[in-house]
Design a protein around this nucleic acid. Structure first.
Lengths: 342, 342
DNA sequence: AACATATTTGACACCGGTGTCAATTGAGTT
DNA sequence: AACTCAATTGACACCGGTGTCAAATATGTT
């Protein structure tokens, strides 16, 4: 409780507050021997700079906030882990803010949050990262942010994965397994990633010279339940698809549920595939074949991008091009997919 | 950016800084008409108090931290949601800190974290909440905390659920379903909740006058994989258990995986039950019967308990008894359990 | 040795609020 | 109208740091 202040150190080292400040900030133009003297005092007294005092003086709070709408626990958790790792390394704190994407007052709520906490910057997770009104507000207020998700409009810093390619690769793989009736579950129509997965799905068909079976495309919303519902629709079609490829794992697991509840054997009678590689894919039987999205790295990169951005002067920032980093996904073959044998 | 300060308001209202401060803190002894005048200026200028200035002056940062070791994504997510809700209502920020329970320098790392952020208080999630060295350090430094989990030692504020009763109720239910060979997967031996679930399991047997089949008790560690492993052991026994009751859902799902990979039909040939009611229980087929732990409420209660504690003076605090709130769990019957028919 | 220049250092105001305490104001009494 | 006492208000220092700028010191030159 009786915390050591910068003044205590200054007195002990026989220098001024400012000089101590210089040492702890590693500023140039401090004579080595002075620096040593001060450092000794710091060590001896166990001084730690009070982040609040610094924040007030510098008008920089040393923490960033993660804005999320809790899409799927696994997805968010993985991101969060990467983000936290970067924050810890850079001595930044991470604030959490949970929002309701659907709330009509979303933008105001977030604005209030920012004012209440003075977070230096924000990390936006889909579907928030696609919300134009939100980005407008942040730009207007001059708040730095990094968007995570699927590359859509060029706007601000962005980190995500190559969703089109992920869907393409998976579709190609399924085609290689001789599947010709591929049921496809679309993502949420409002989210950028949705168009991308569909695009990849179609491109792979085109490349293989196989027509897309339009009747086997069902709408989904990235939720487990929407996967169940879409699978229900697809499994009622004749001929039945021999594989269901969902735009994310959450829905793939939903499809698995629906298949199993009907007594359809996976993968013998139906293959199932998803995208993301969230933890649940290996917690169900059979484990789900998926495209691994490096969420941990994405989170890490997003956070360190944001932190680096914050360290630059606002002027520099506006002149420099925005970061736009895309990771590739990797095919992870598990037990839920199998060669189709007519 | 050009933020409005308390001085701006003071000038506009023709009063002193301090009077404005009184108004925004709703202090007594401000003449109504003065208050009105100030409030008008505040509204007109759109003034928001800078939390950093306040934090520095009051030596209270207005945020608390959630320390977690990410046991199961679903578990943590639910808690987090409740915690965040309470924080939002009380205008508190929530910091996140991810730690490695196993790290030998855990205590120092957490200490550094506290010093770096000046969080007013901490919320501890199992297994952190059982870690004595950590509690010692926090007590020594005078940091307020609330522990979440299973009631063990009386130490600090505590919020959790009645684990013994949960295990008791589930066991009783399984016995009512005529199961006599109940496979039981223990929790992590280091965590307090483990003893409690075992206790409840045994008490239910005792009450029903049925002996516990000791050969059907397997060690688990609360992880999915440990559930798989324990189920493997149990399913190799003769006679095979007719139901597997795991100390948490994560392991129950693991057991389900193992059963399904062996081609054992659940619930026809084997029933499965867990505790917690995390989201995955309804994302697998069949849905898992479980004891619903009100994690959201627990998180909410923990956070508001902590916040209320922080609002009291340290002196008062040490004199007052600690909060110790236990929630009851509720039996949620789903498709994974079924009456045993010899 | 005297001077010009570069490097180091410190005094002081300031970031945006709050606590203390004395000064001012208003109400109630005689 | 003068006086007492409580309610209201403001001046000022302070929380723990940083930025500015001028003063002090060190270094290099002739």
């Amino acid at each position: 409780m009786a915390s050591v202040t910068i003044m205590d150190v200054a007195r002990k080292a026989g220098v001024s507050k400012k000089t101590v400040s210089r040492v702890i900030n590693n500023e140039a133009n401090v004579r080595p021997q002075t620096k040593e003297k001060v450092q000794a005092a710091i060590d001896e007294l166990g001084f730690k700079r009070n982040p609040l005092g610094m924040a007030l003086a510098k008008n920089r709070s040393l923490f960033i906030a993660l804005l999320a709408d809790n899409p799927s626990p696994g997805y968010l958790m993985n991101l969060q882990k990467g983000i936290l790792q970067a924050c810890t390394e850079e001595h930044m704190g991470l604030f959490l803010y949970d929002c309701q994407y659907r709330s009509p007052s979303l933008v105001e709520e977030i604005q209030t949050f920012i004012e209440n906490t003075l977070a230096d910057g924000l990390i936006l997770v889909p579907p928030l990262s696609d919300k134009v009104e939100l980005l407008d507000m942040l730009d207007r207020k001059g708040v730095s942010y990094v968007r995570i998700g699927t590359k859509d409009t060029k706007r601000g810093d962005f980190v995500g994965s190559n969703t089109t390619k992920a869907a393409f690769d998976m579709t190609e793989y399924l085609i290689k397994l001789k599947h010709r009736h591929i049921g496809f579950i679309l993502g949420h129509p409002d989210q950028a990633s949705s168009k991308r997965t569909e695009q990849g799905f179609r491109e792979a068909h085109a490349k293989a010279g196989i027509p897309v079976d339009e009747s086997l495309i069902a709408q989904g919303y990235y939720t487990h339940q929407s996967g169940v519902d879409a699978a229900m629709t697809l499994l009622n079609k004749t001929p039945r698809p021999t594989v269901i490829f969902a735009s994310n794992d959450e829905m793939a697991v939903g499809a698995l549920c629906e298949a199993q509840s009907r007594g359809i054997k996976v993968p013998e009678e139906l293959s199932i595939a998803g995208i993301d590689d969230i933890s649940i894919t290996t917690k169900v039987w059979p484990n789900i074949t998926t495209m691994r999205q490096p969420l941990n790295s994405i989170g890490y990169t997003a956070a360190s991008t944001l932190i680096r951005r914050l360290q630059k002067k606002p002027l520099e920032q506006s002149e420099e091009a925005f970061v736009n980093q895309l990771f590739d996904c990797e095919l992870v073959i598990r037990q839920s997919t199998k060669t189709y044998v007519g």
